[in-house]
Simulated scan of single mutants.
Amino acid sequence: MEPSVLSLLGKQFIRGISTSVCACGKRNFKKFPIFNKRGTRDFKARQAKNPHPDVPIHTYGVRPIGYKAGTSFVKINELVPEIIVPDLTGFKLKPYVSYRVNDIVQPPLTPEELFGAVYVKKITEDFKLGKLGPDNQPLHPSPEESLSPEEAKEKVASIRSDIV
C-alpha cells in the first residue's frame, strides 16, 4: 500500500500504516504479573534461589507459618494451624440440611411465658396443699424455684425445642 502525501506550506506530511510496535520492542510487564505457576522453568528456578523484589511470590491466601531471616526460614509452631475434628460416631443428625425445610419462627420469650413454663405448676400445687408460708413463700422450694433467671431461661428454651 502506498502512503498518501500531503504538502502544506513547504512541509510534507506522509501518512502510512506501521506494522511494528510503537514501543520499539519494549513491553510493560507490570501489567502482566508473573506468579508462582507462570513463567519458564528457568524463571522459577531463579525465583526460588534469589527472588526478584518486583515479582511477588503469590501465596494464594495461605497464611505464613513463620518468617524469613536472611536466607533461612524460621518456623513458628504457634502459627501452624491445628485442626480439631470431633468424633461423630453414633451422631444422629445427617450432615446435610435440605433447603426445602420450613423456616421456624419463634417470637422472643416474654416474662409471662417464662413464669408460666417454670413456676406456675409448683405454685398452684403449694397453694392447694397449703404449703405456703406467711409471705406466700414456699416452705419447701423445688429445684425450679431455686433456679437463677439464666438457668430458667435455658430450661424454657429446651422445653420449646422439644415441642417444636
Score class of each variant (00 low, 15 high):
69 A>K: 15
16 G>H: 15
148 S>W: 03
60 Y>R: 14
3 P>V: 01
33 P>S: 10
68 K>H: 04
63 R>N: 07
93 L>H: 13
158 S>K: 14
104 I>N: 04
150 E>G: 07
124 T>Q: 11
43 F>S: 08
51 P>S: 09
132 L>G: 15
96 Y>G: 01
160 R>H: 07
106 Q>D: 04
84 I>S: 13
96 Y>C: 03
34 I>R: 14
145 E>I: 07
119 Y>M: 05
67 Y>I: 03
23 A>L: 03
14 I>C: 06
151 E>V: 04
17 I>L: 08
46 R>I: 02
28 N>M: 00
85 V>E: 04
36 N>H: 12
19 T>M: 09
27 R>V: 00
47 Q>Y: 03
133 G>F: 04
62 V>N: 13
137 Q>K: 15
21 V>G: 12
62 V>K: 14
57 I>W: 05
145 E>W: 07
129 L>S: 11
86 P>C: 03
158 S>G: 08
132 L>M: 14
74 V>D: 03
140 H>A: 09
133 G>Y: 04
130 G>E: 03
12 Q>H: 12
86 P>K: 05
36 N>P: 02
114 L>G: 05
77 N>P: 03
7 S>H: 10
28 N>V: 02
49 K>Y: 07
50 N>A: 11
19 T>N: 09
124 T>L: 12
57 I>Q: 12
48 A>C: 11
154 E>C: 05
57 I>H: 12
115 F>I: 05
144 E>Y: 06
112 E>H: 11
97 V>W: 01
163 I>L: 09
79 L>W: 10
19 T>E: 10
135 D>Q: 14
115 F>K: 11
115 F>D: 04
61 G>E: 02
73 F>K: 10
112 E>P: 00
126 D>G: 08
72 S>I: 08
47 Q>V: 04
161 S>R: 15
29 F>M: 14
111 P>V: 13
123 I>G: 09
63 R>I: 01
97 V>H: 09
12 Q>N: 13
4 S>Y: 11
130 G>Y: 01
160 R>M: 06
18 S>L: 04
39 G>A: 12
101 V>C: 10
95 P>L: 00
73 F>I: 08
158 S>I: 08
82 E>N: 08
151 E>Y: 01
27 R>N: 04
6 L>R: 13
2 E>R: 13
97 V>E: 08
136 N>Q: 12
135 D>I: 00
113 E>Y: 09
134 P>H: 06
148 S>V: 01
132 L>F: 05
29 F>H: 12
87 D>N: 15
58 H>C: 02
52 H>N: 11
142 S>P: 07
86 P>A: 08
150 E>A: 13
1 M>I: 03
116 G>S: 14
74 V>Y: 01
116 G>R: 15
106 Q>F: 00
83 I>F: 05
164 V>M: 06
123 I>F: 01
40 T>N: 12
114 L>K: 15
53 P>K: 14
103 D>T: 10
110 T>C: 06
155 K>D: 00
35 F>C: 12
119 Y>F: 03
63 R>F: 00
38 R>K: 04
140 H>R: 13
46 R>T: 02
32 F>Y: 15
22 C>Y: 02
154 E>F: 06
5 V>R: 15
84 I>W: 01
164 V>H: 12
60 Y>V: 02
71 T>P: 05
